[in-house]
Each structure stands twice: as structure tokens, then as C-alpha cells.
Design a protein around this nucleic acid. Sequence first.
DNA 1: AACATAATTGAGAACCATTCTCAATTATAT
DNA 2: ATATAATTGAGAATGGTTCTCAATTATGTT
Lengths: 155, 155
Amino acid sequence: MKILKGHHGNCCCGKIRGFGRRITPARHAVLDTLSTRGEHLTAEDVFKASSRRYPNIGLATVYRTLELFTKLGMVSKLDTGDDKARYEFADGPHAKGHHHHLVCTSCRRIVDYTDFIKEEMDLLRKTEEGLSKKYGFKINSHVMQFYGLCRDCAR
Amino acid sequence: MKILKGHHGNCCCGKIRGFGRRITPARHAVLDTLSTRGEHLTAEDVFKASSRRYPNIGLATVYRTLELFTKLGMVSKLDTGDDKARYEFADGPHAKGHHHHLVCTSCRRIVDYTDFIKEEMDLLRKTEEGLSKKYGFKINSHVMQFYGLCRDCAR
DNA sequence: AACATAATTGAGAACCATTCTCAATTATAT
DNA sequence: ATATAATTGAGAATGGTTCTCAATTATGTT
Ligand SMILES: [Zn+2]
Ligand SMILES: [Zn+2]
Ligand SMILES: [Zn+2]
Ligand SMILES: [Zn+2]
């Protein structure tokens, strides 16, 4: 497979190379998928969509790639309570910006919301600082998520 | 097994009966375990501890019981990112009060904190209301959790 | 107390998302 | 072009959780 240099901007390739990791067709395919298909994709979703561009890609590679991207901070992995991890671009050129999630426990619909995000982030920052000081933790991430029933599922 | 009536207060038995479910030795054993052993127990933890009081209990029953108690709102199930659900008494007579969690991603230590809980609950309430109105969700629960490295794991 | 009935149970099999293994392939620096 | 280590695909393995089903038991009724 031909690798289109610069297709995703230099940010991603640079970031990958910066960690001594290689640019490969499989990684490009996953990158493509994450930027063109919607958000909150399961590994299976990513596998299927990436297979279209790069038919030989294996599911294990998709998992490894998503894990790598998550470790590099390019992707965020989220748990919505149904035993399947979901992935989306983290903040960055392809991302929507920082948001939190509202999840329907019946149909699994996921709403990205940014309402209140300012207050939430302020409180999170303040809390992180306080907890960090009091309990001696080096805090790396947080989860803030709401669960309920969407309009369709509620009636 | 002898069932000690009232041992756990009438609240739990009443709640269980109120839903047309039966009081059984297995359920009592799980209730005992949850109230005497610490918090954040895995199903396996609950199984082992409950087996001491009631040797014939089966793992599947523990899962079913924890699921039931969670549905009845007596227990809360939490995910701390290691593919094993944890369980603890929810708010109510046996609970310490509502709290959030700080999780060490290395040693899996879990700190219950109540610092900032007032501000957090205020914001959560406000956010729930706003999201509920804007997106038409009937919100039932939330997760607010911090991940990081504890002092021992950080060095 | 004995009965009827549906709920509950234990044991093990099944499930399924994810991780592991390993030989073959390939990106990258020289 | 060559050497090297990283990466890969395929399938097996893992492990927490759920399912199946015949046997047992809690509970209300007689
Ligand atoms: Zn829904
Ligand atoms: Zn999102
Ligand atoms: Zn730790
Ligand atoms: Zn807790």
C-alpha cells in the first residue's frame, strides 16, 4: 500500500516517529478510519472500516494500533458500560475538542456534549490539584460521564 | 443455613421482598460480605468471602445477586479500568455516604474521597438538569473518577 | 404440617472482547 | 542493497461474565 505522506498532517506521523515507532500502512488505515468515520468506534468498527482501505489488516493489529495511539495521547479510549471499548480522536487537529459523554443505557447512543464544559473543566482541575496534594497521586486522566435513557428509549 | 432475620436491618430484606424477590441464604451471605469486608470488591472477592459463611454458594449466584442488588439500588457497580467490575454498598444505611474514586492505574489501589464532593454534586446536579433539558435524556447515574499513580507507584 | 408453584440455585459450558504467540514480513538507518 | 529490530496477520488462548438446565427451596395457601 502506498503511504500518502502528509495526508494526515505532519502531527501524527511526527508524533509516532518521535517515539521511535514506525509509520505503516496499517497505522495509516486506522488513522484514516478514525478521521473519516464518526466517533466512539469499537475496535470491530475500526477493523471493518480499515479493512476497506487495507484489506489485509488484522484485528489484533487494530487493537495494537489503538493501544499505541492511546498511549501517545492521540486517541482516547472510553468505556460506556457495555464491555466494548470505544475509541475517538483525542484533542488535536482531527478532534472536536474536549467533551464529555452522555450515554443511553438502552440503545447505546452517545451524545458528545460541551455544555457546562468550562465549569466542569475548572472543577476537575481544582479537584485534581486538591486530590493530588492530599493523597499523593500523580493524576493523569479523569472520566466524567452521565448515563440515562434517551428520549426514544424512555417512552 | 439459618437465616437471621433482621440481622441486616429490615431495609434490605424489605427492599428485596418489595420487588417480589425472595430472601435466600445466598443473598444473605452476599449481604454479609458486602457489609463486613471492605469496599470495591470484585465478584471473585465476594464469592470467596461468602463461601466461608455459606460454602455451597456458586459464582454464578454471586453474579446474579450482585446484579439484582445493583438493580435495586442497594449496591453500586464500578469499573476501574481493569476489566473486573467492583461492587460496594450504595448510599443507604450501610454506606459511608456518596463518594467518588481516585484509582491508581498501576497497583489498582482505590481511594474513596469526599473532598470537593459538595461542589462536585452541585455541578453534577446542575449539569444533569441542563443536559436532561437539552438532549431529552432521563439521567439515572453518573461516573466521576480520577486515574493516576499513587505515591508508591509514581516513584 | 403438607402442598403447590414459581423463584432460585450450583455446576459447568458457552460467550466474547481482548491479548498473546510466533513465524513471516517490512520500515528504517546505514 | 543490507542489516536490524519493529511490525504484522492468523489463530490460539485468556478470563471475566453470562447462559443453560435439572434440582432445590422460599413462600403463600390449604
Ligand atoms: Zn436510547
Ligand atoms: Zn466523544
Ligand atoms: Zn499504585
Ligand atoms: Zn468507593
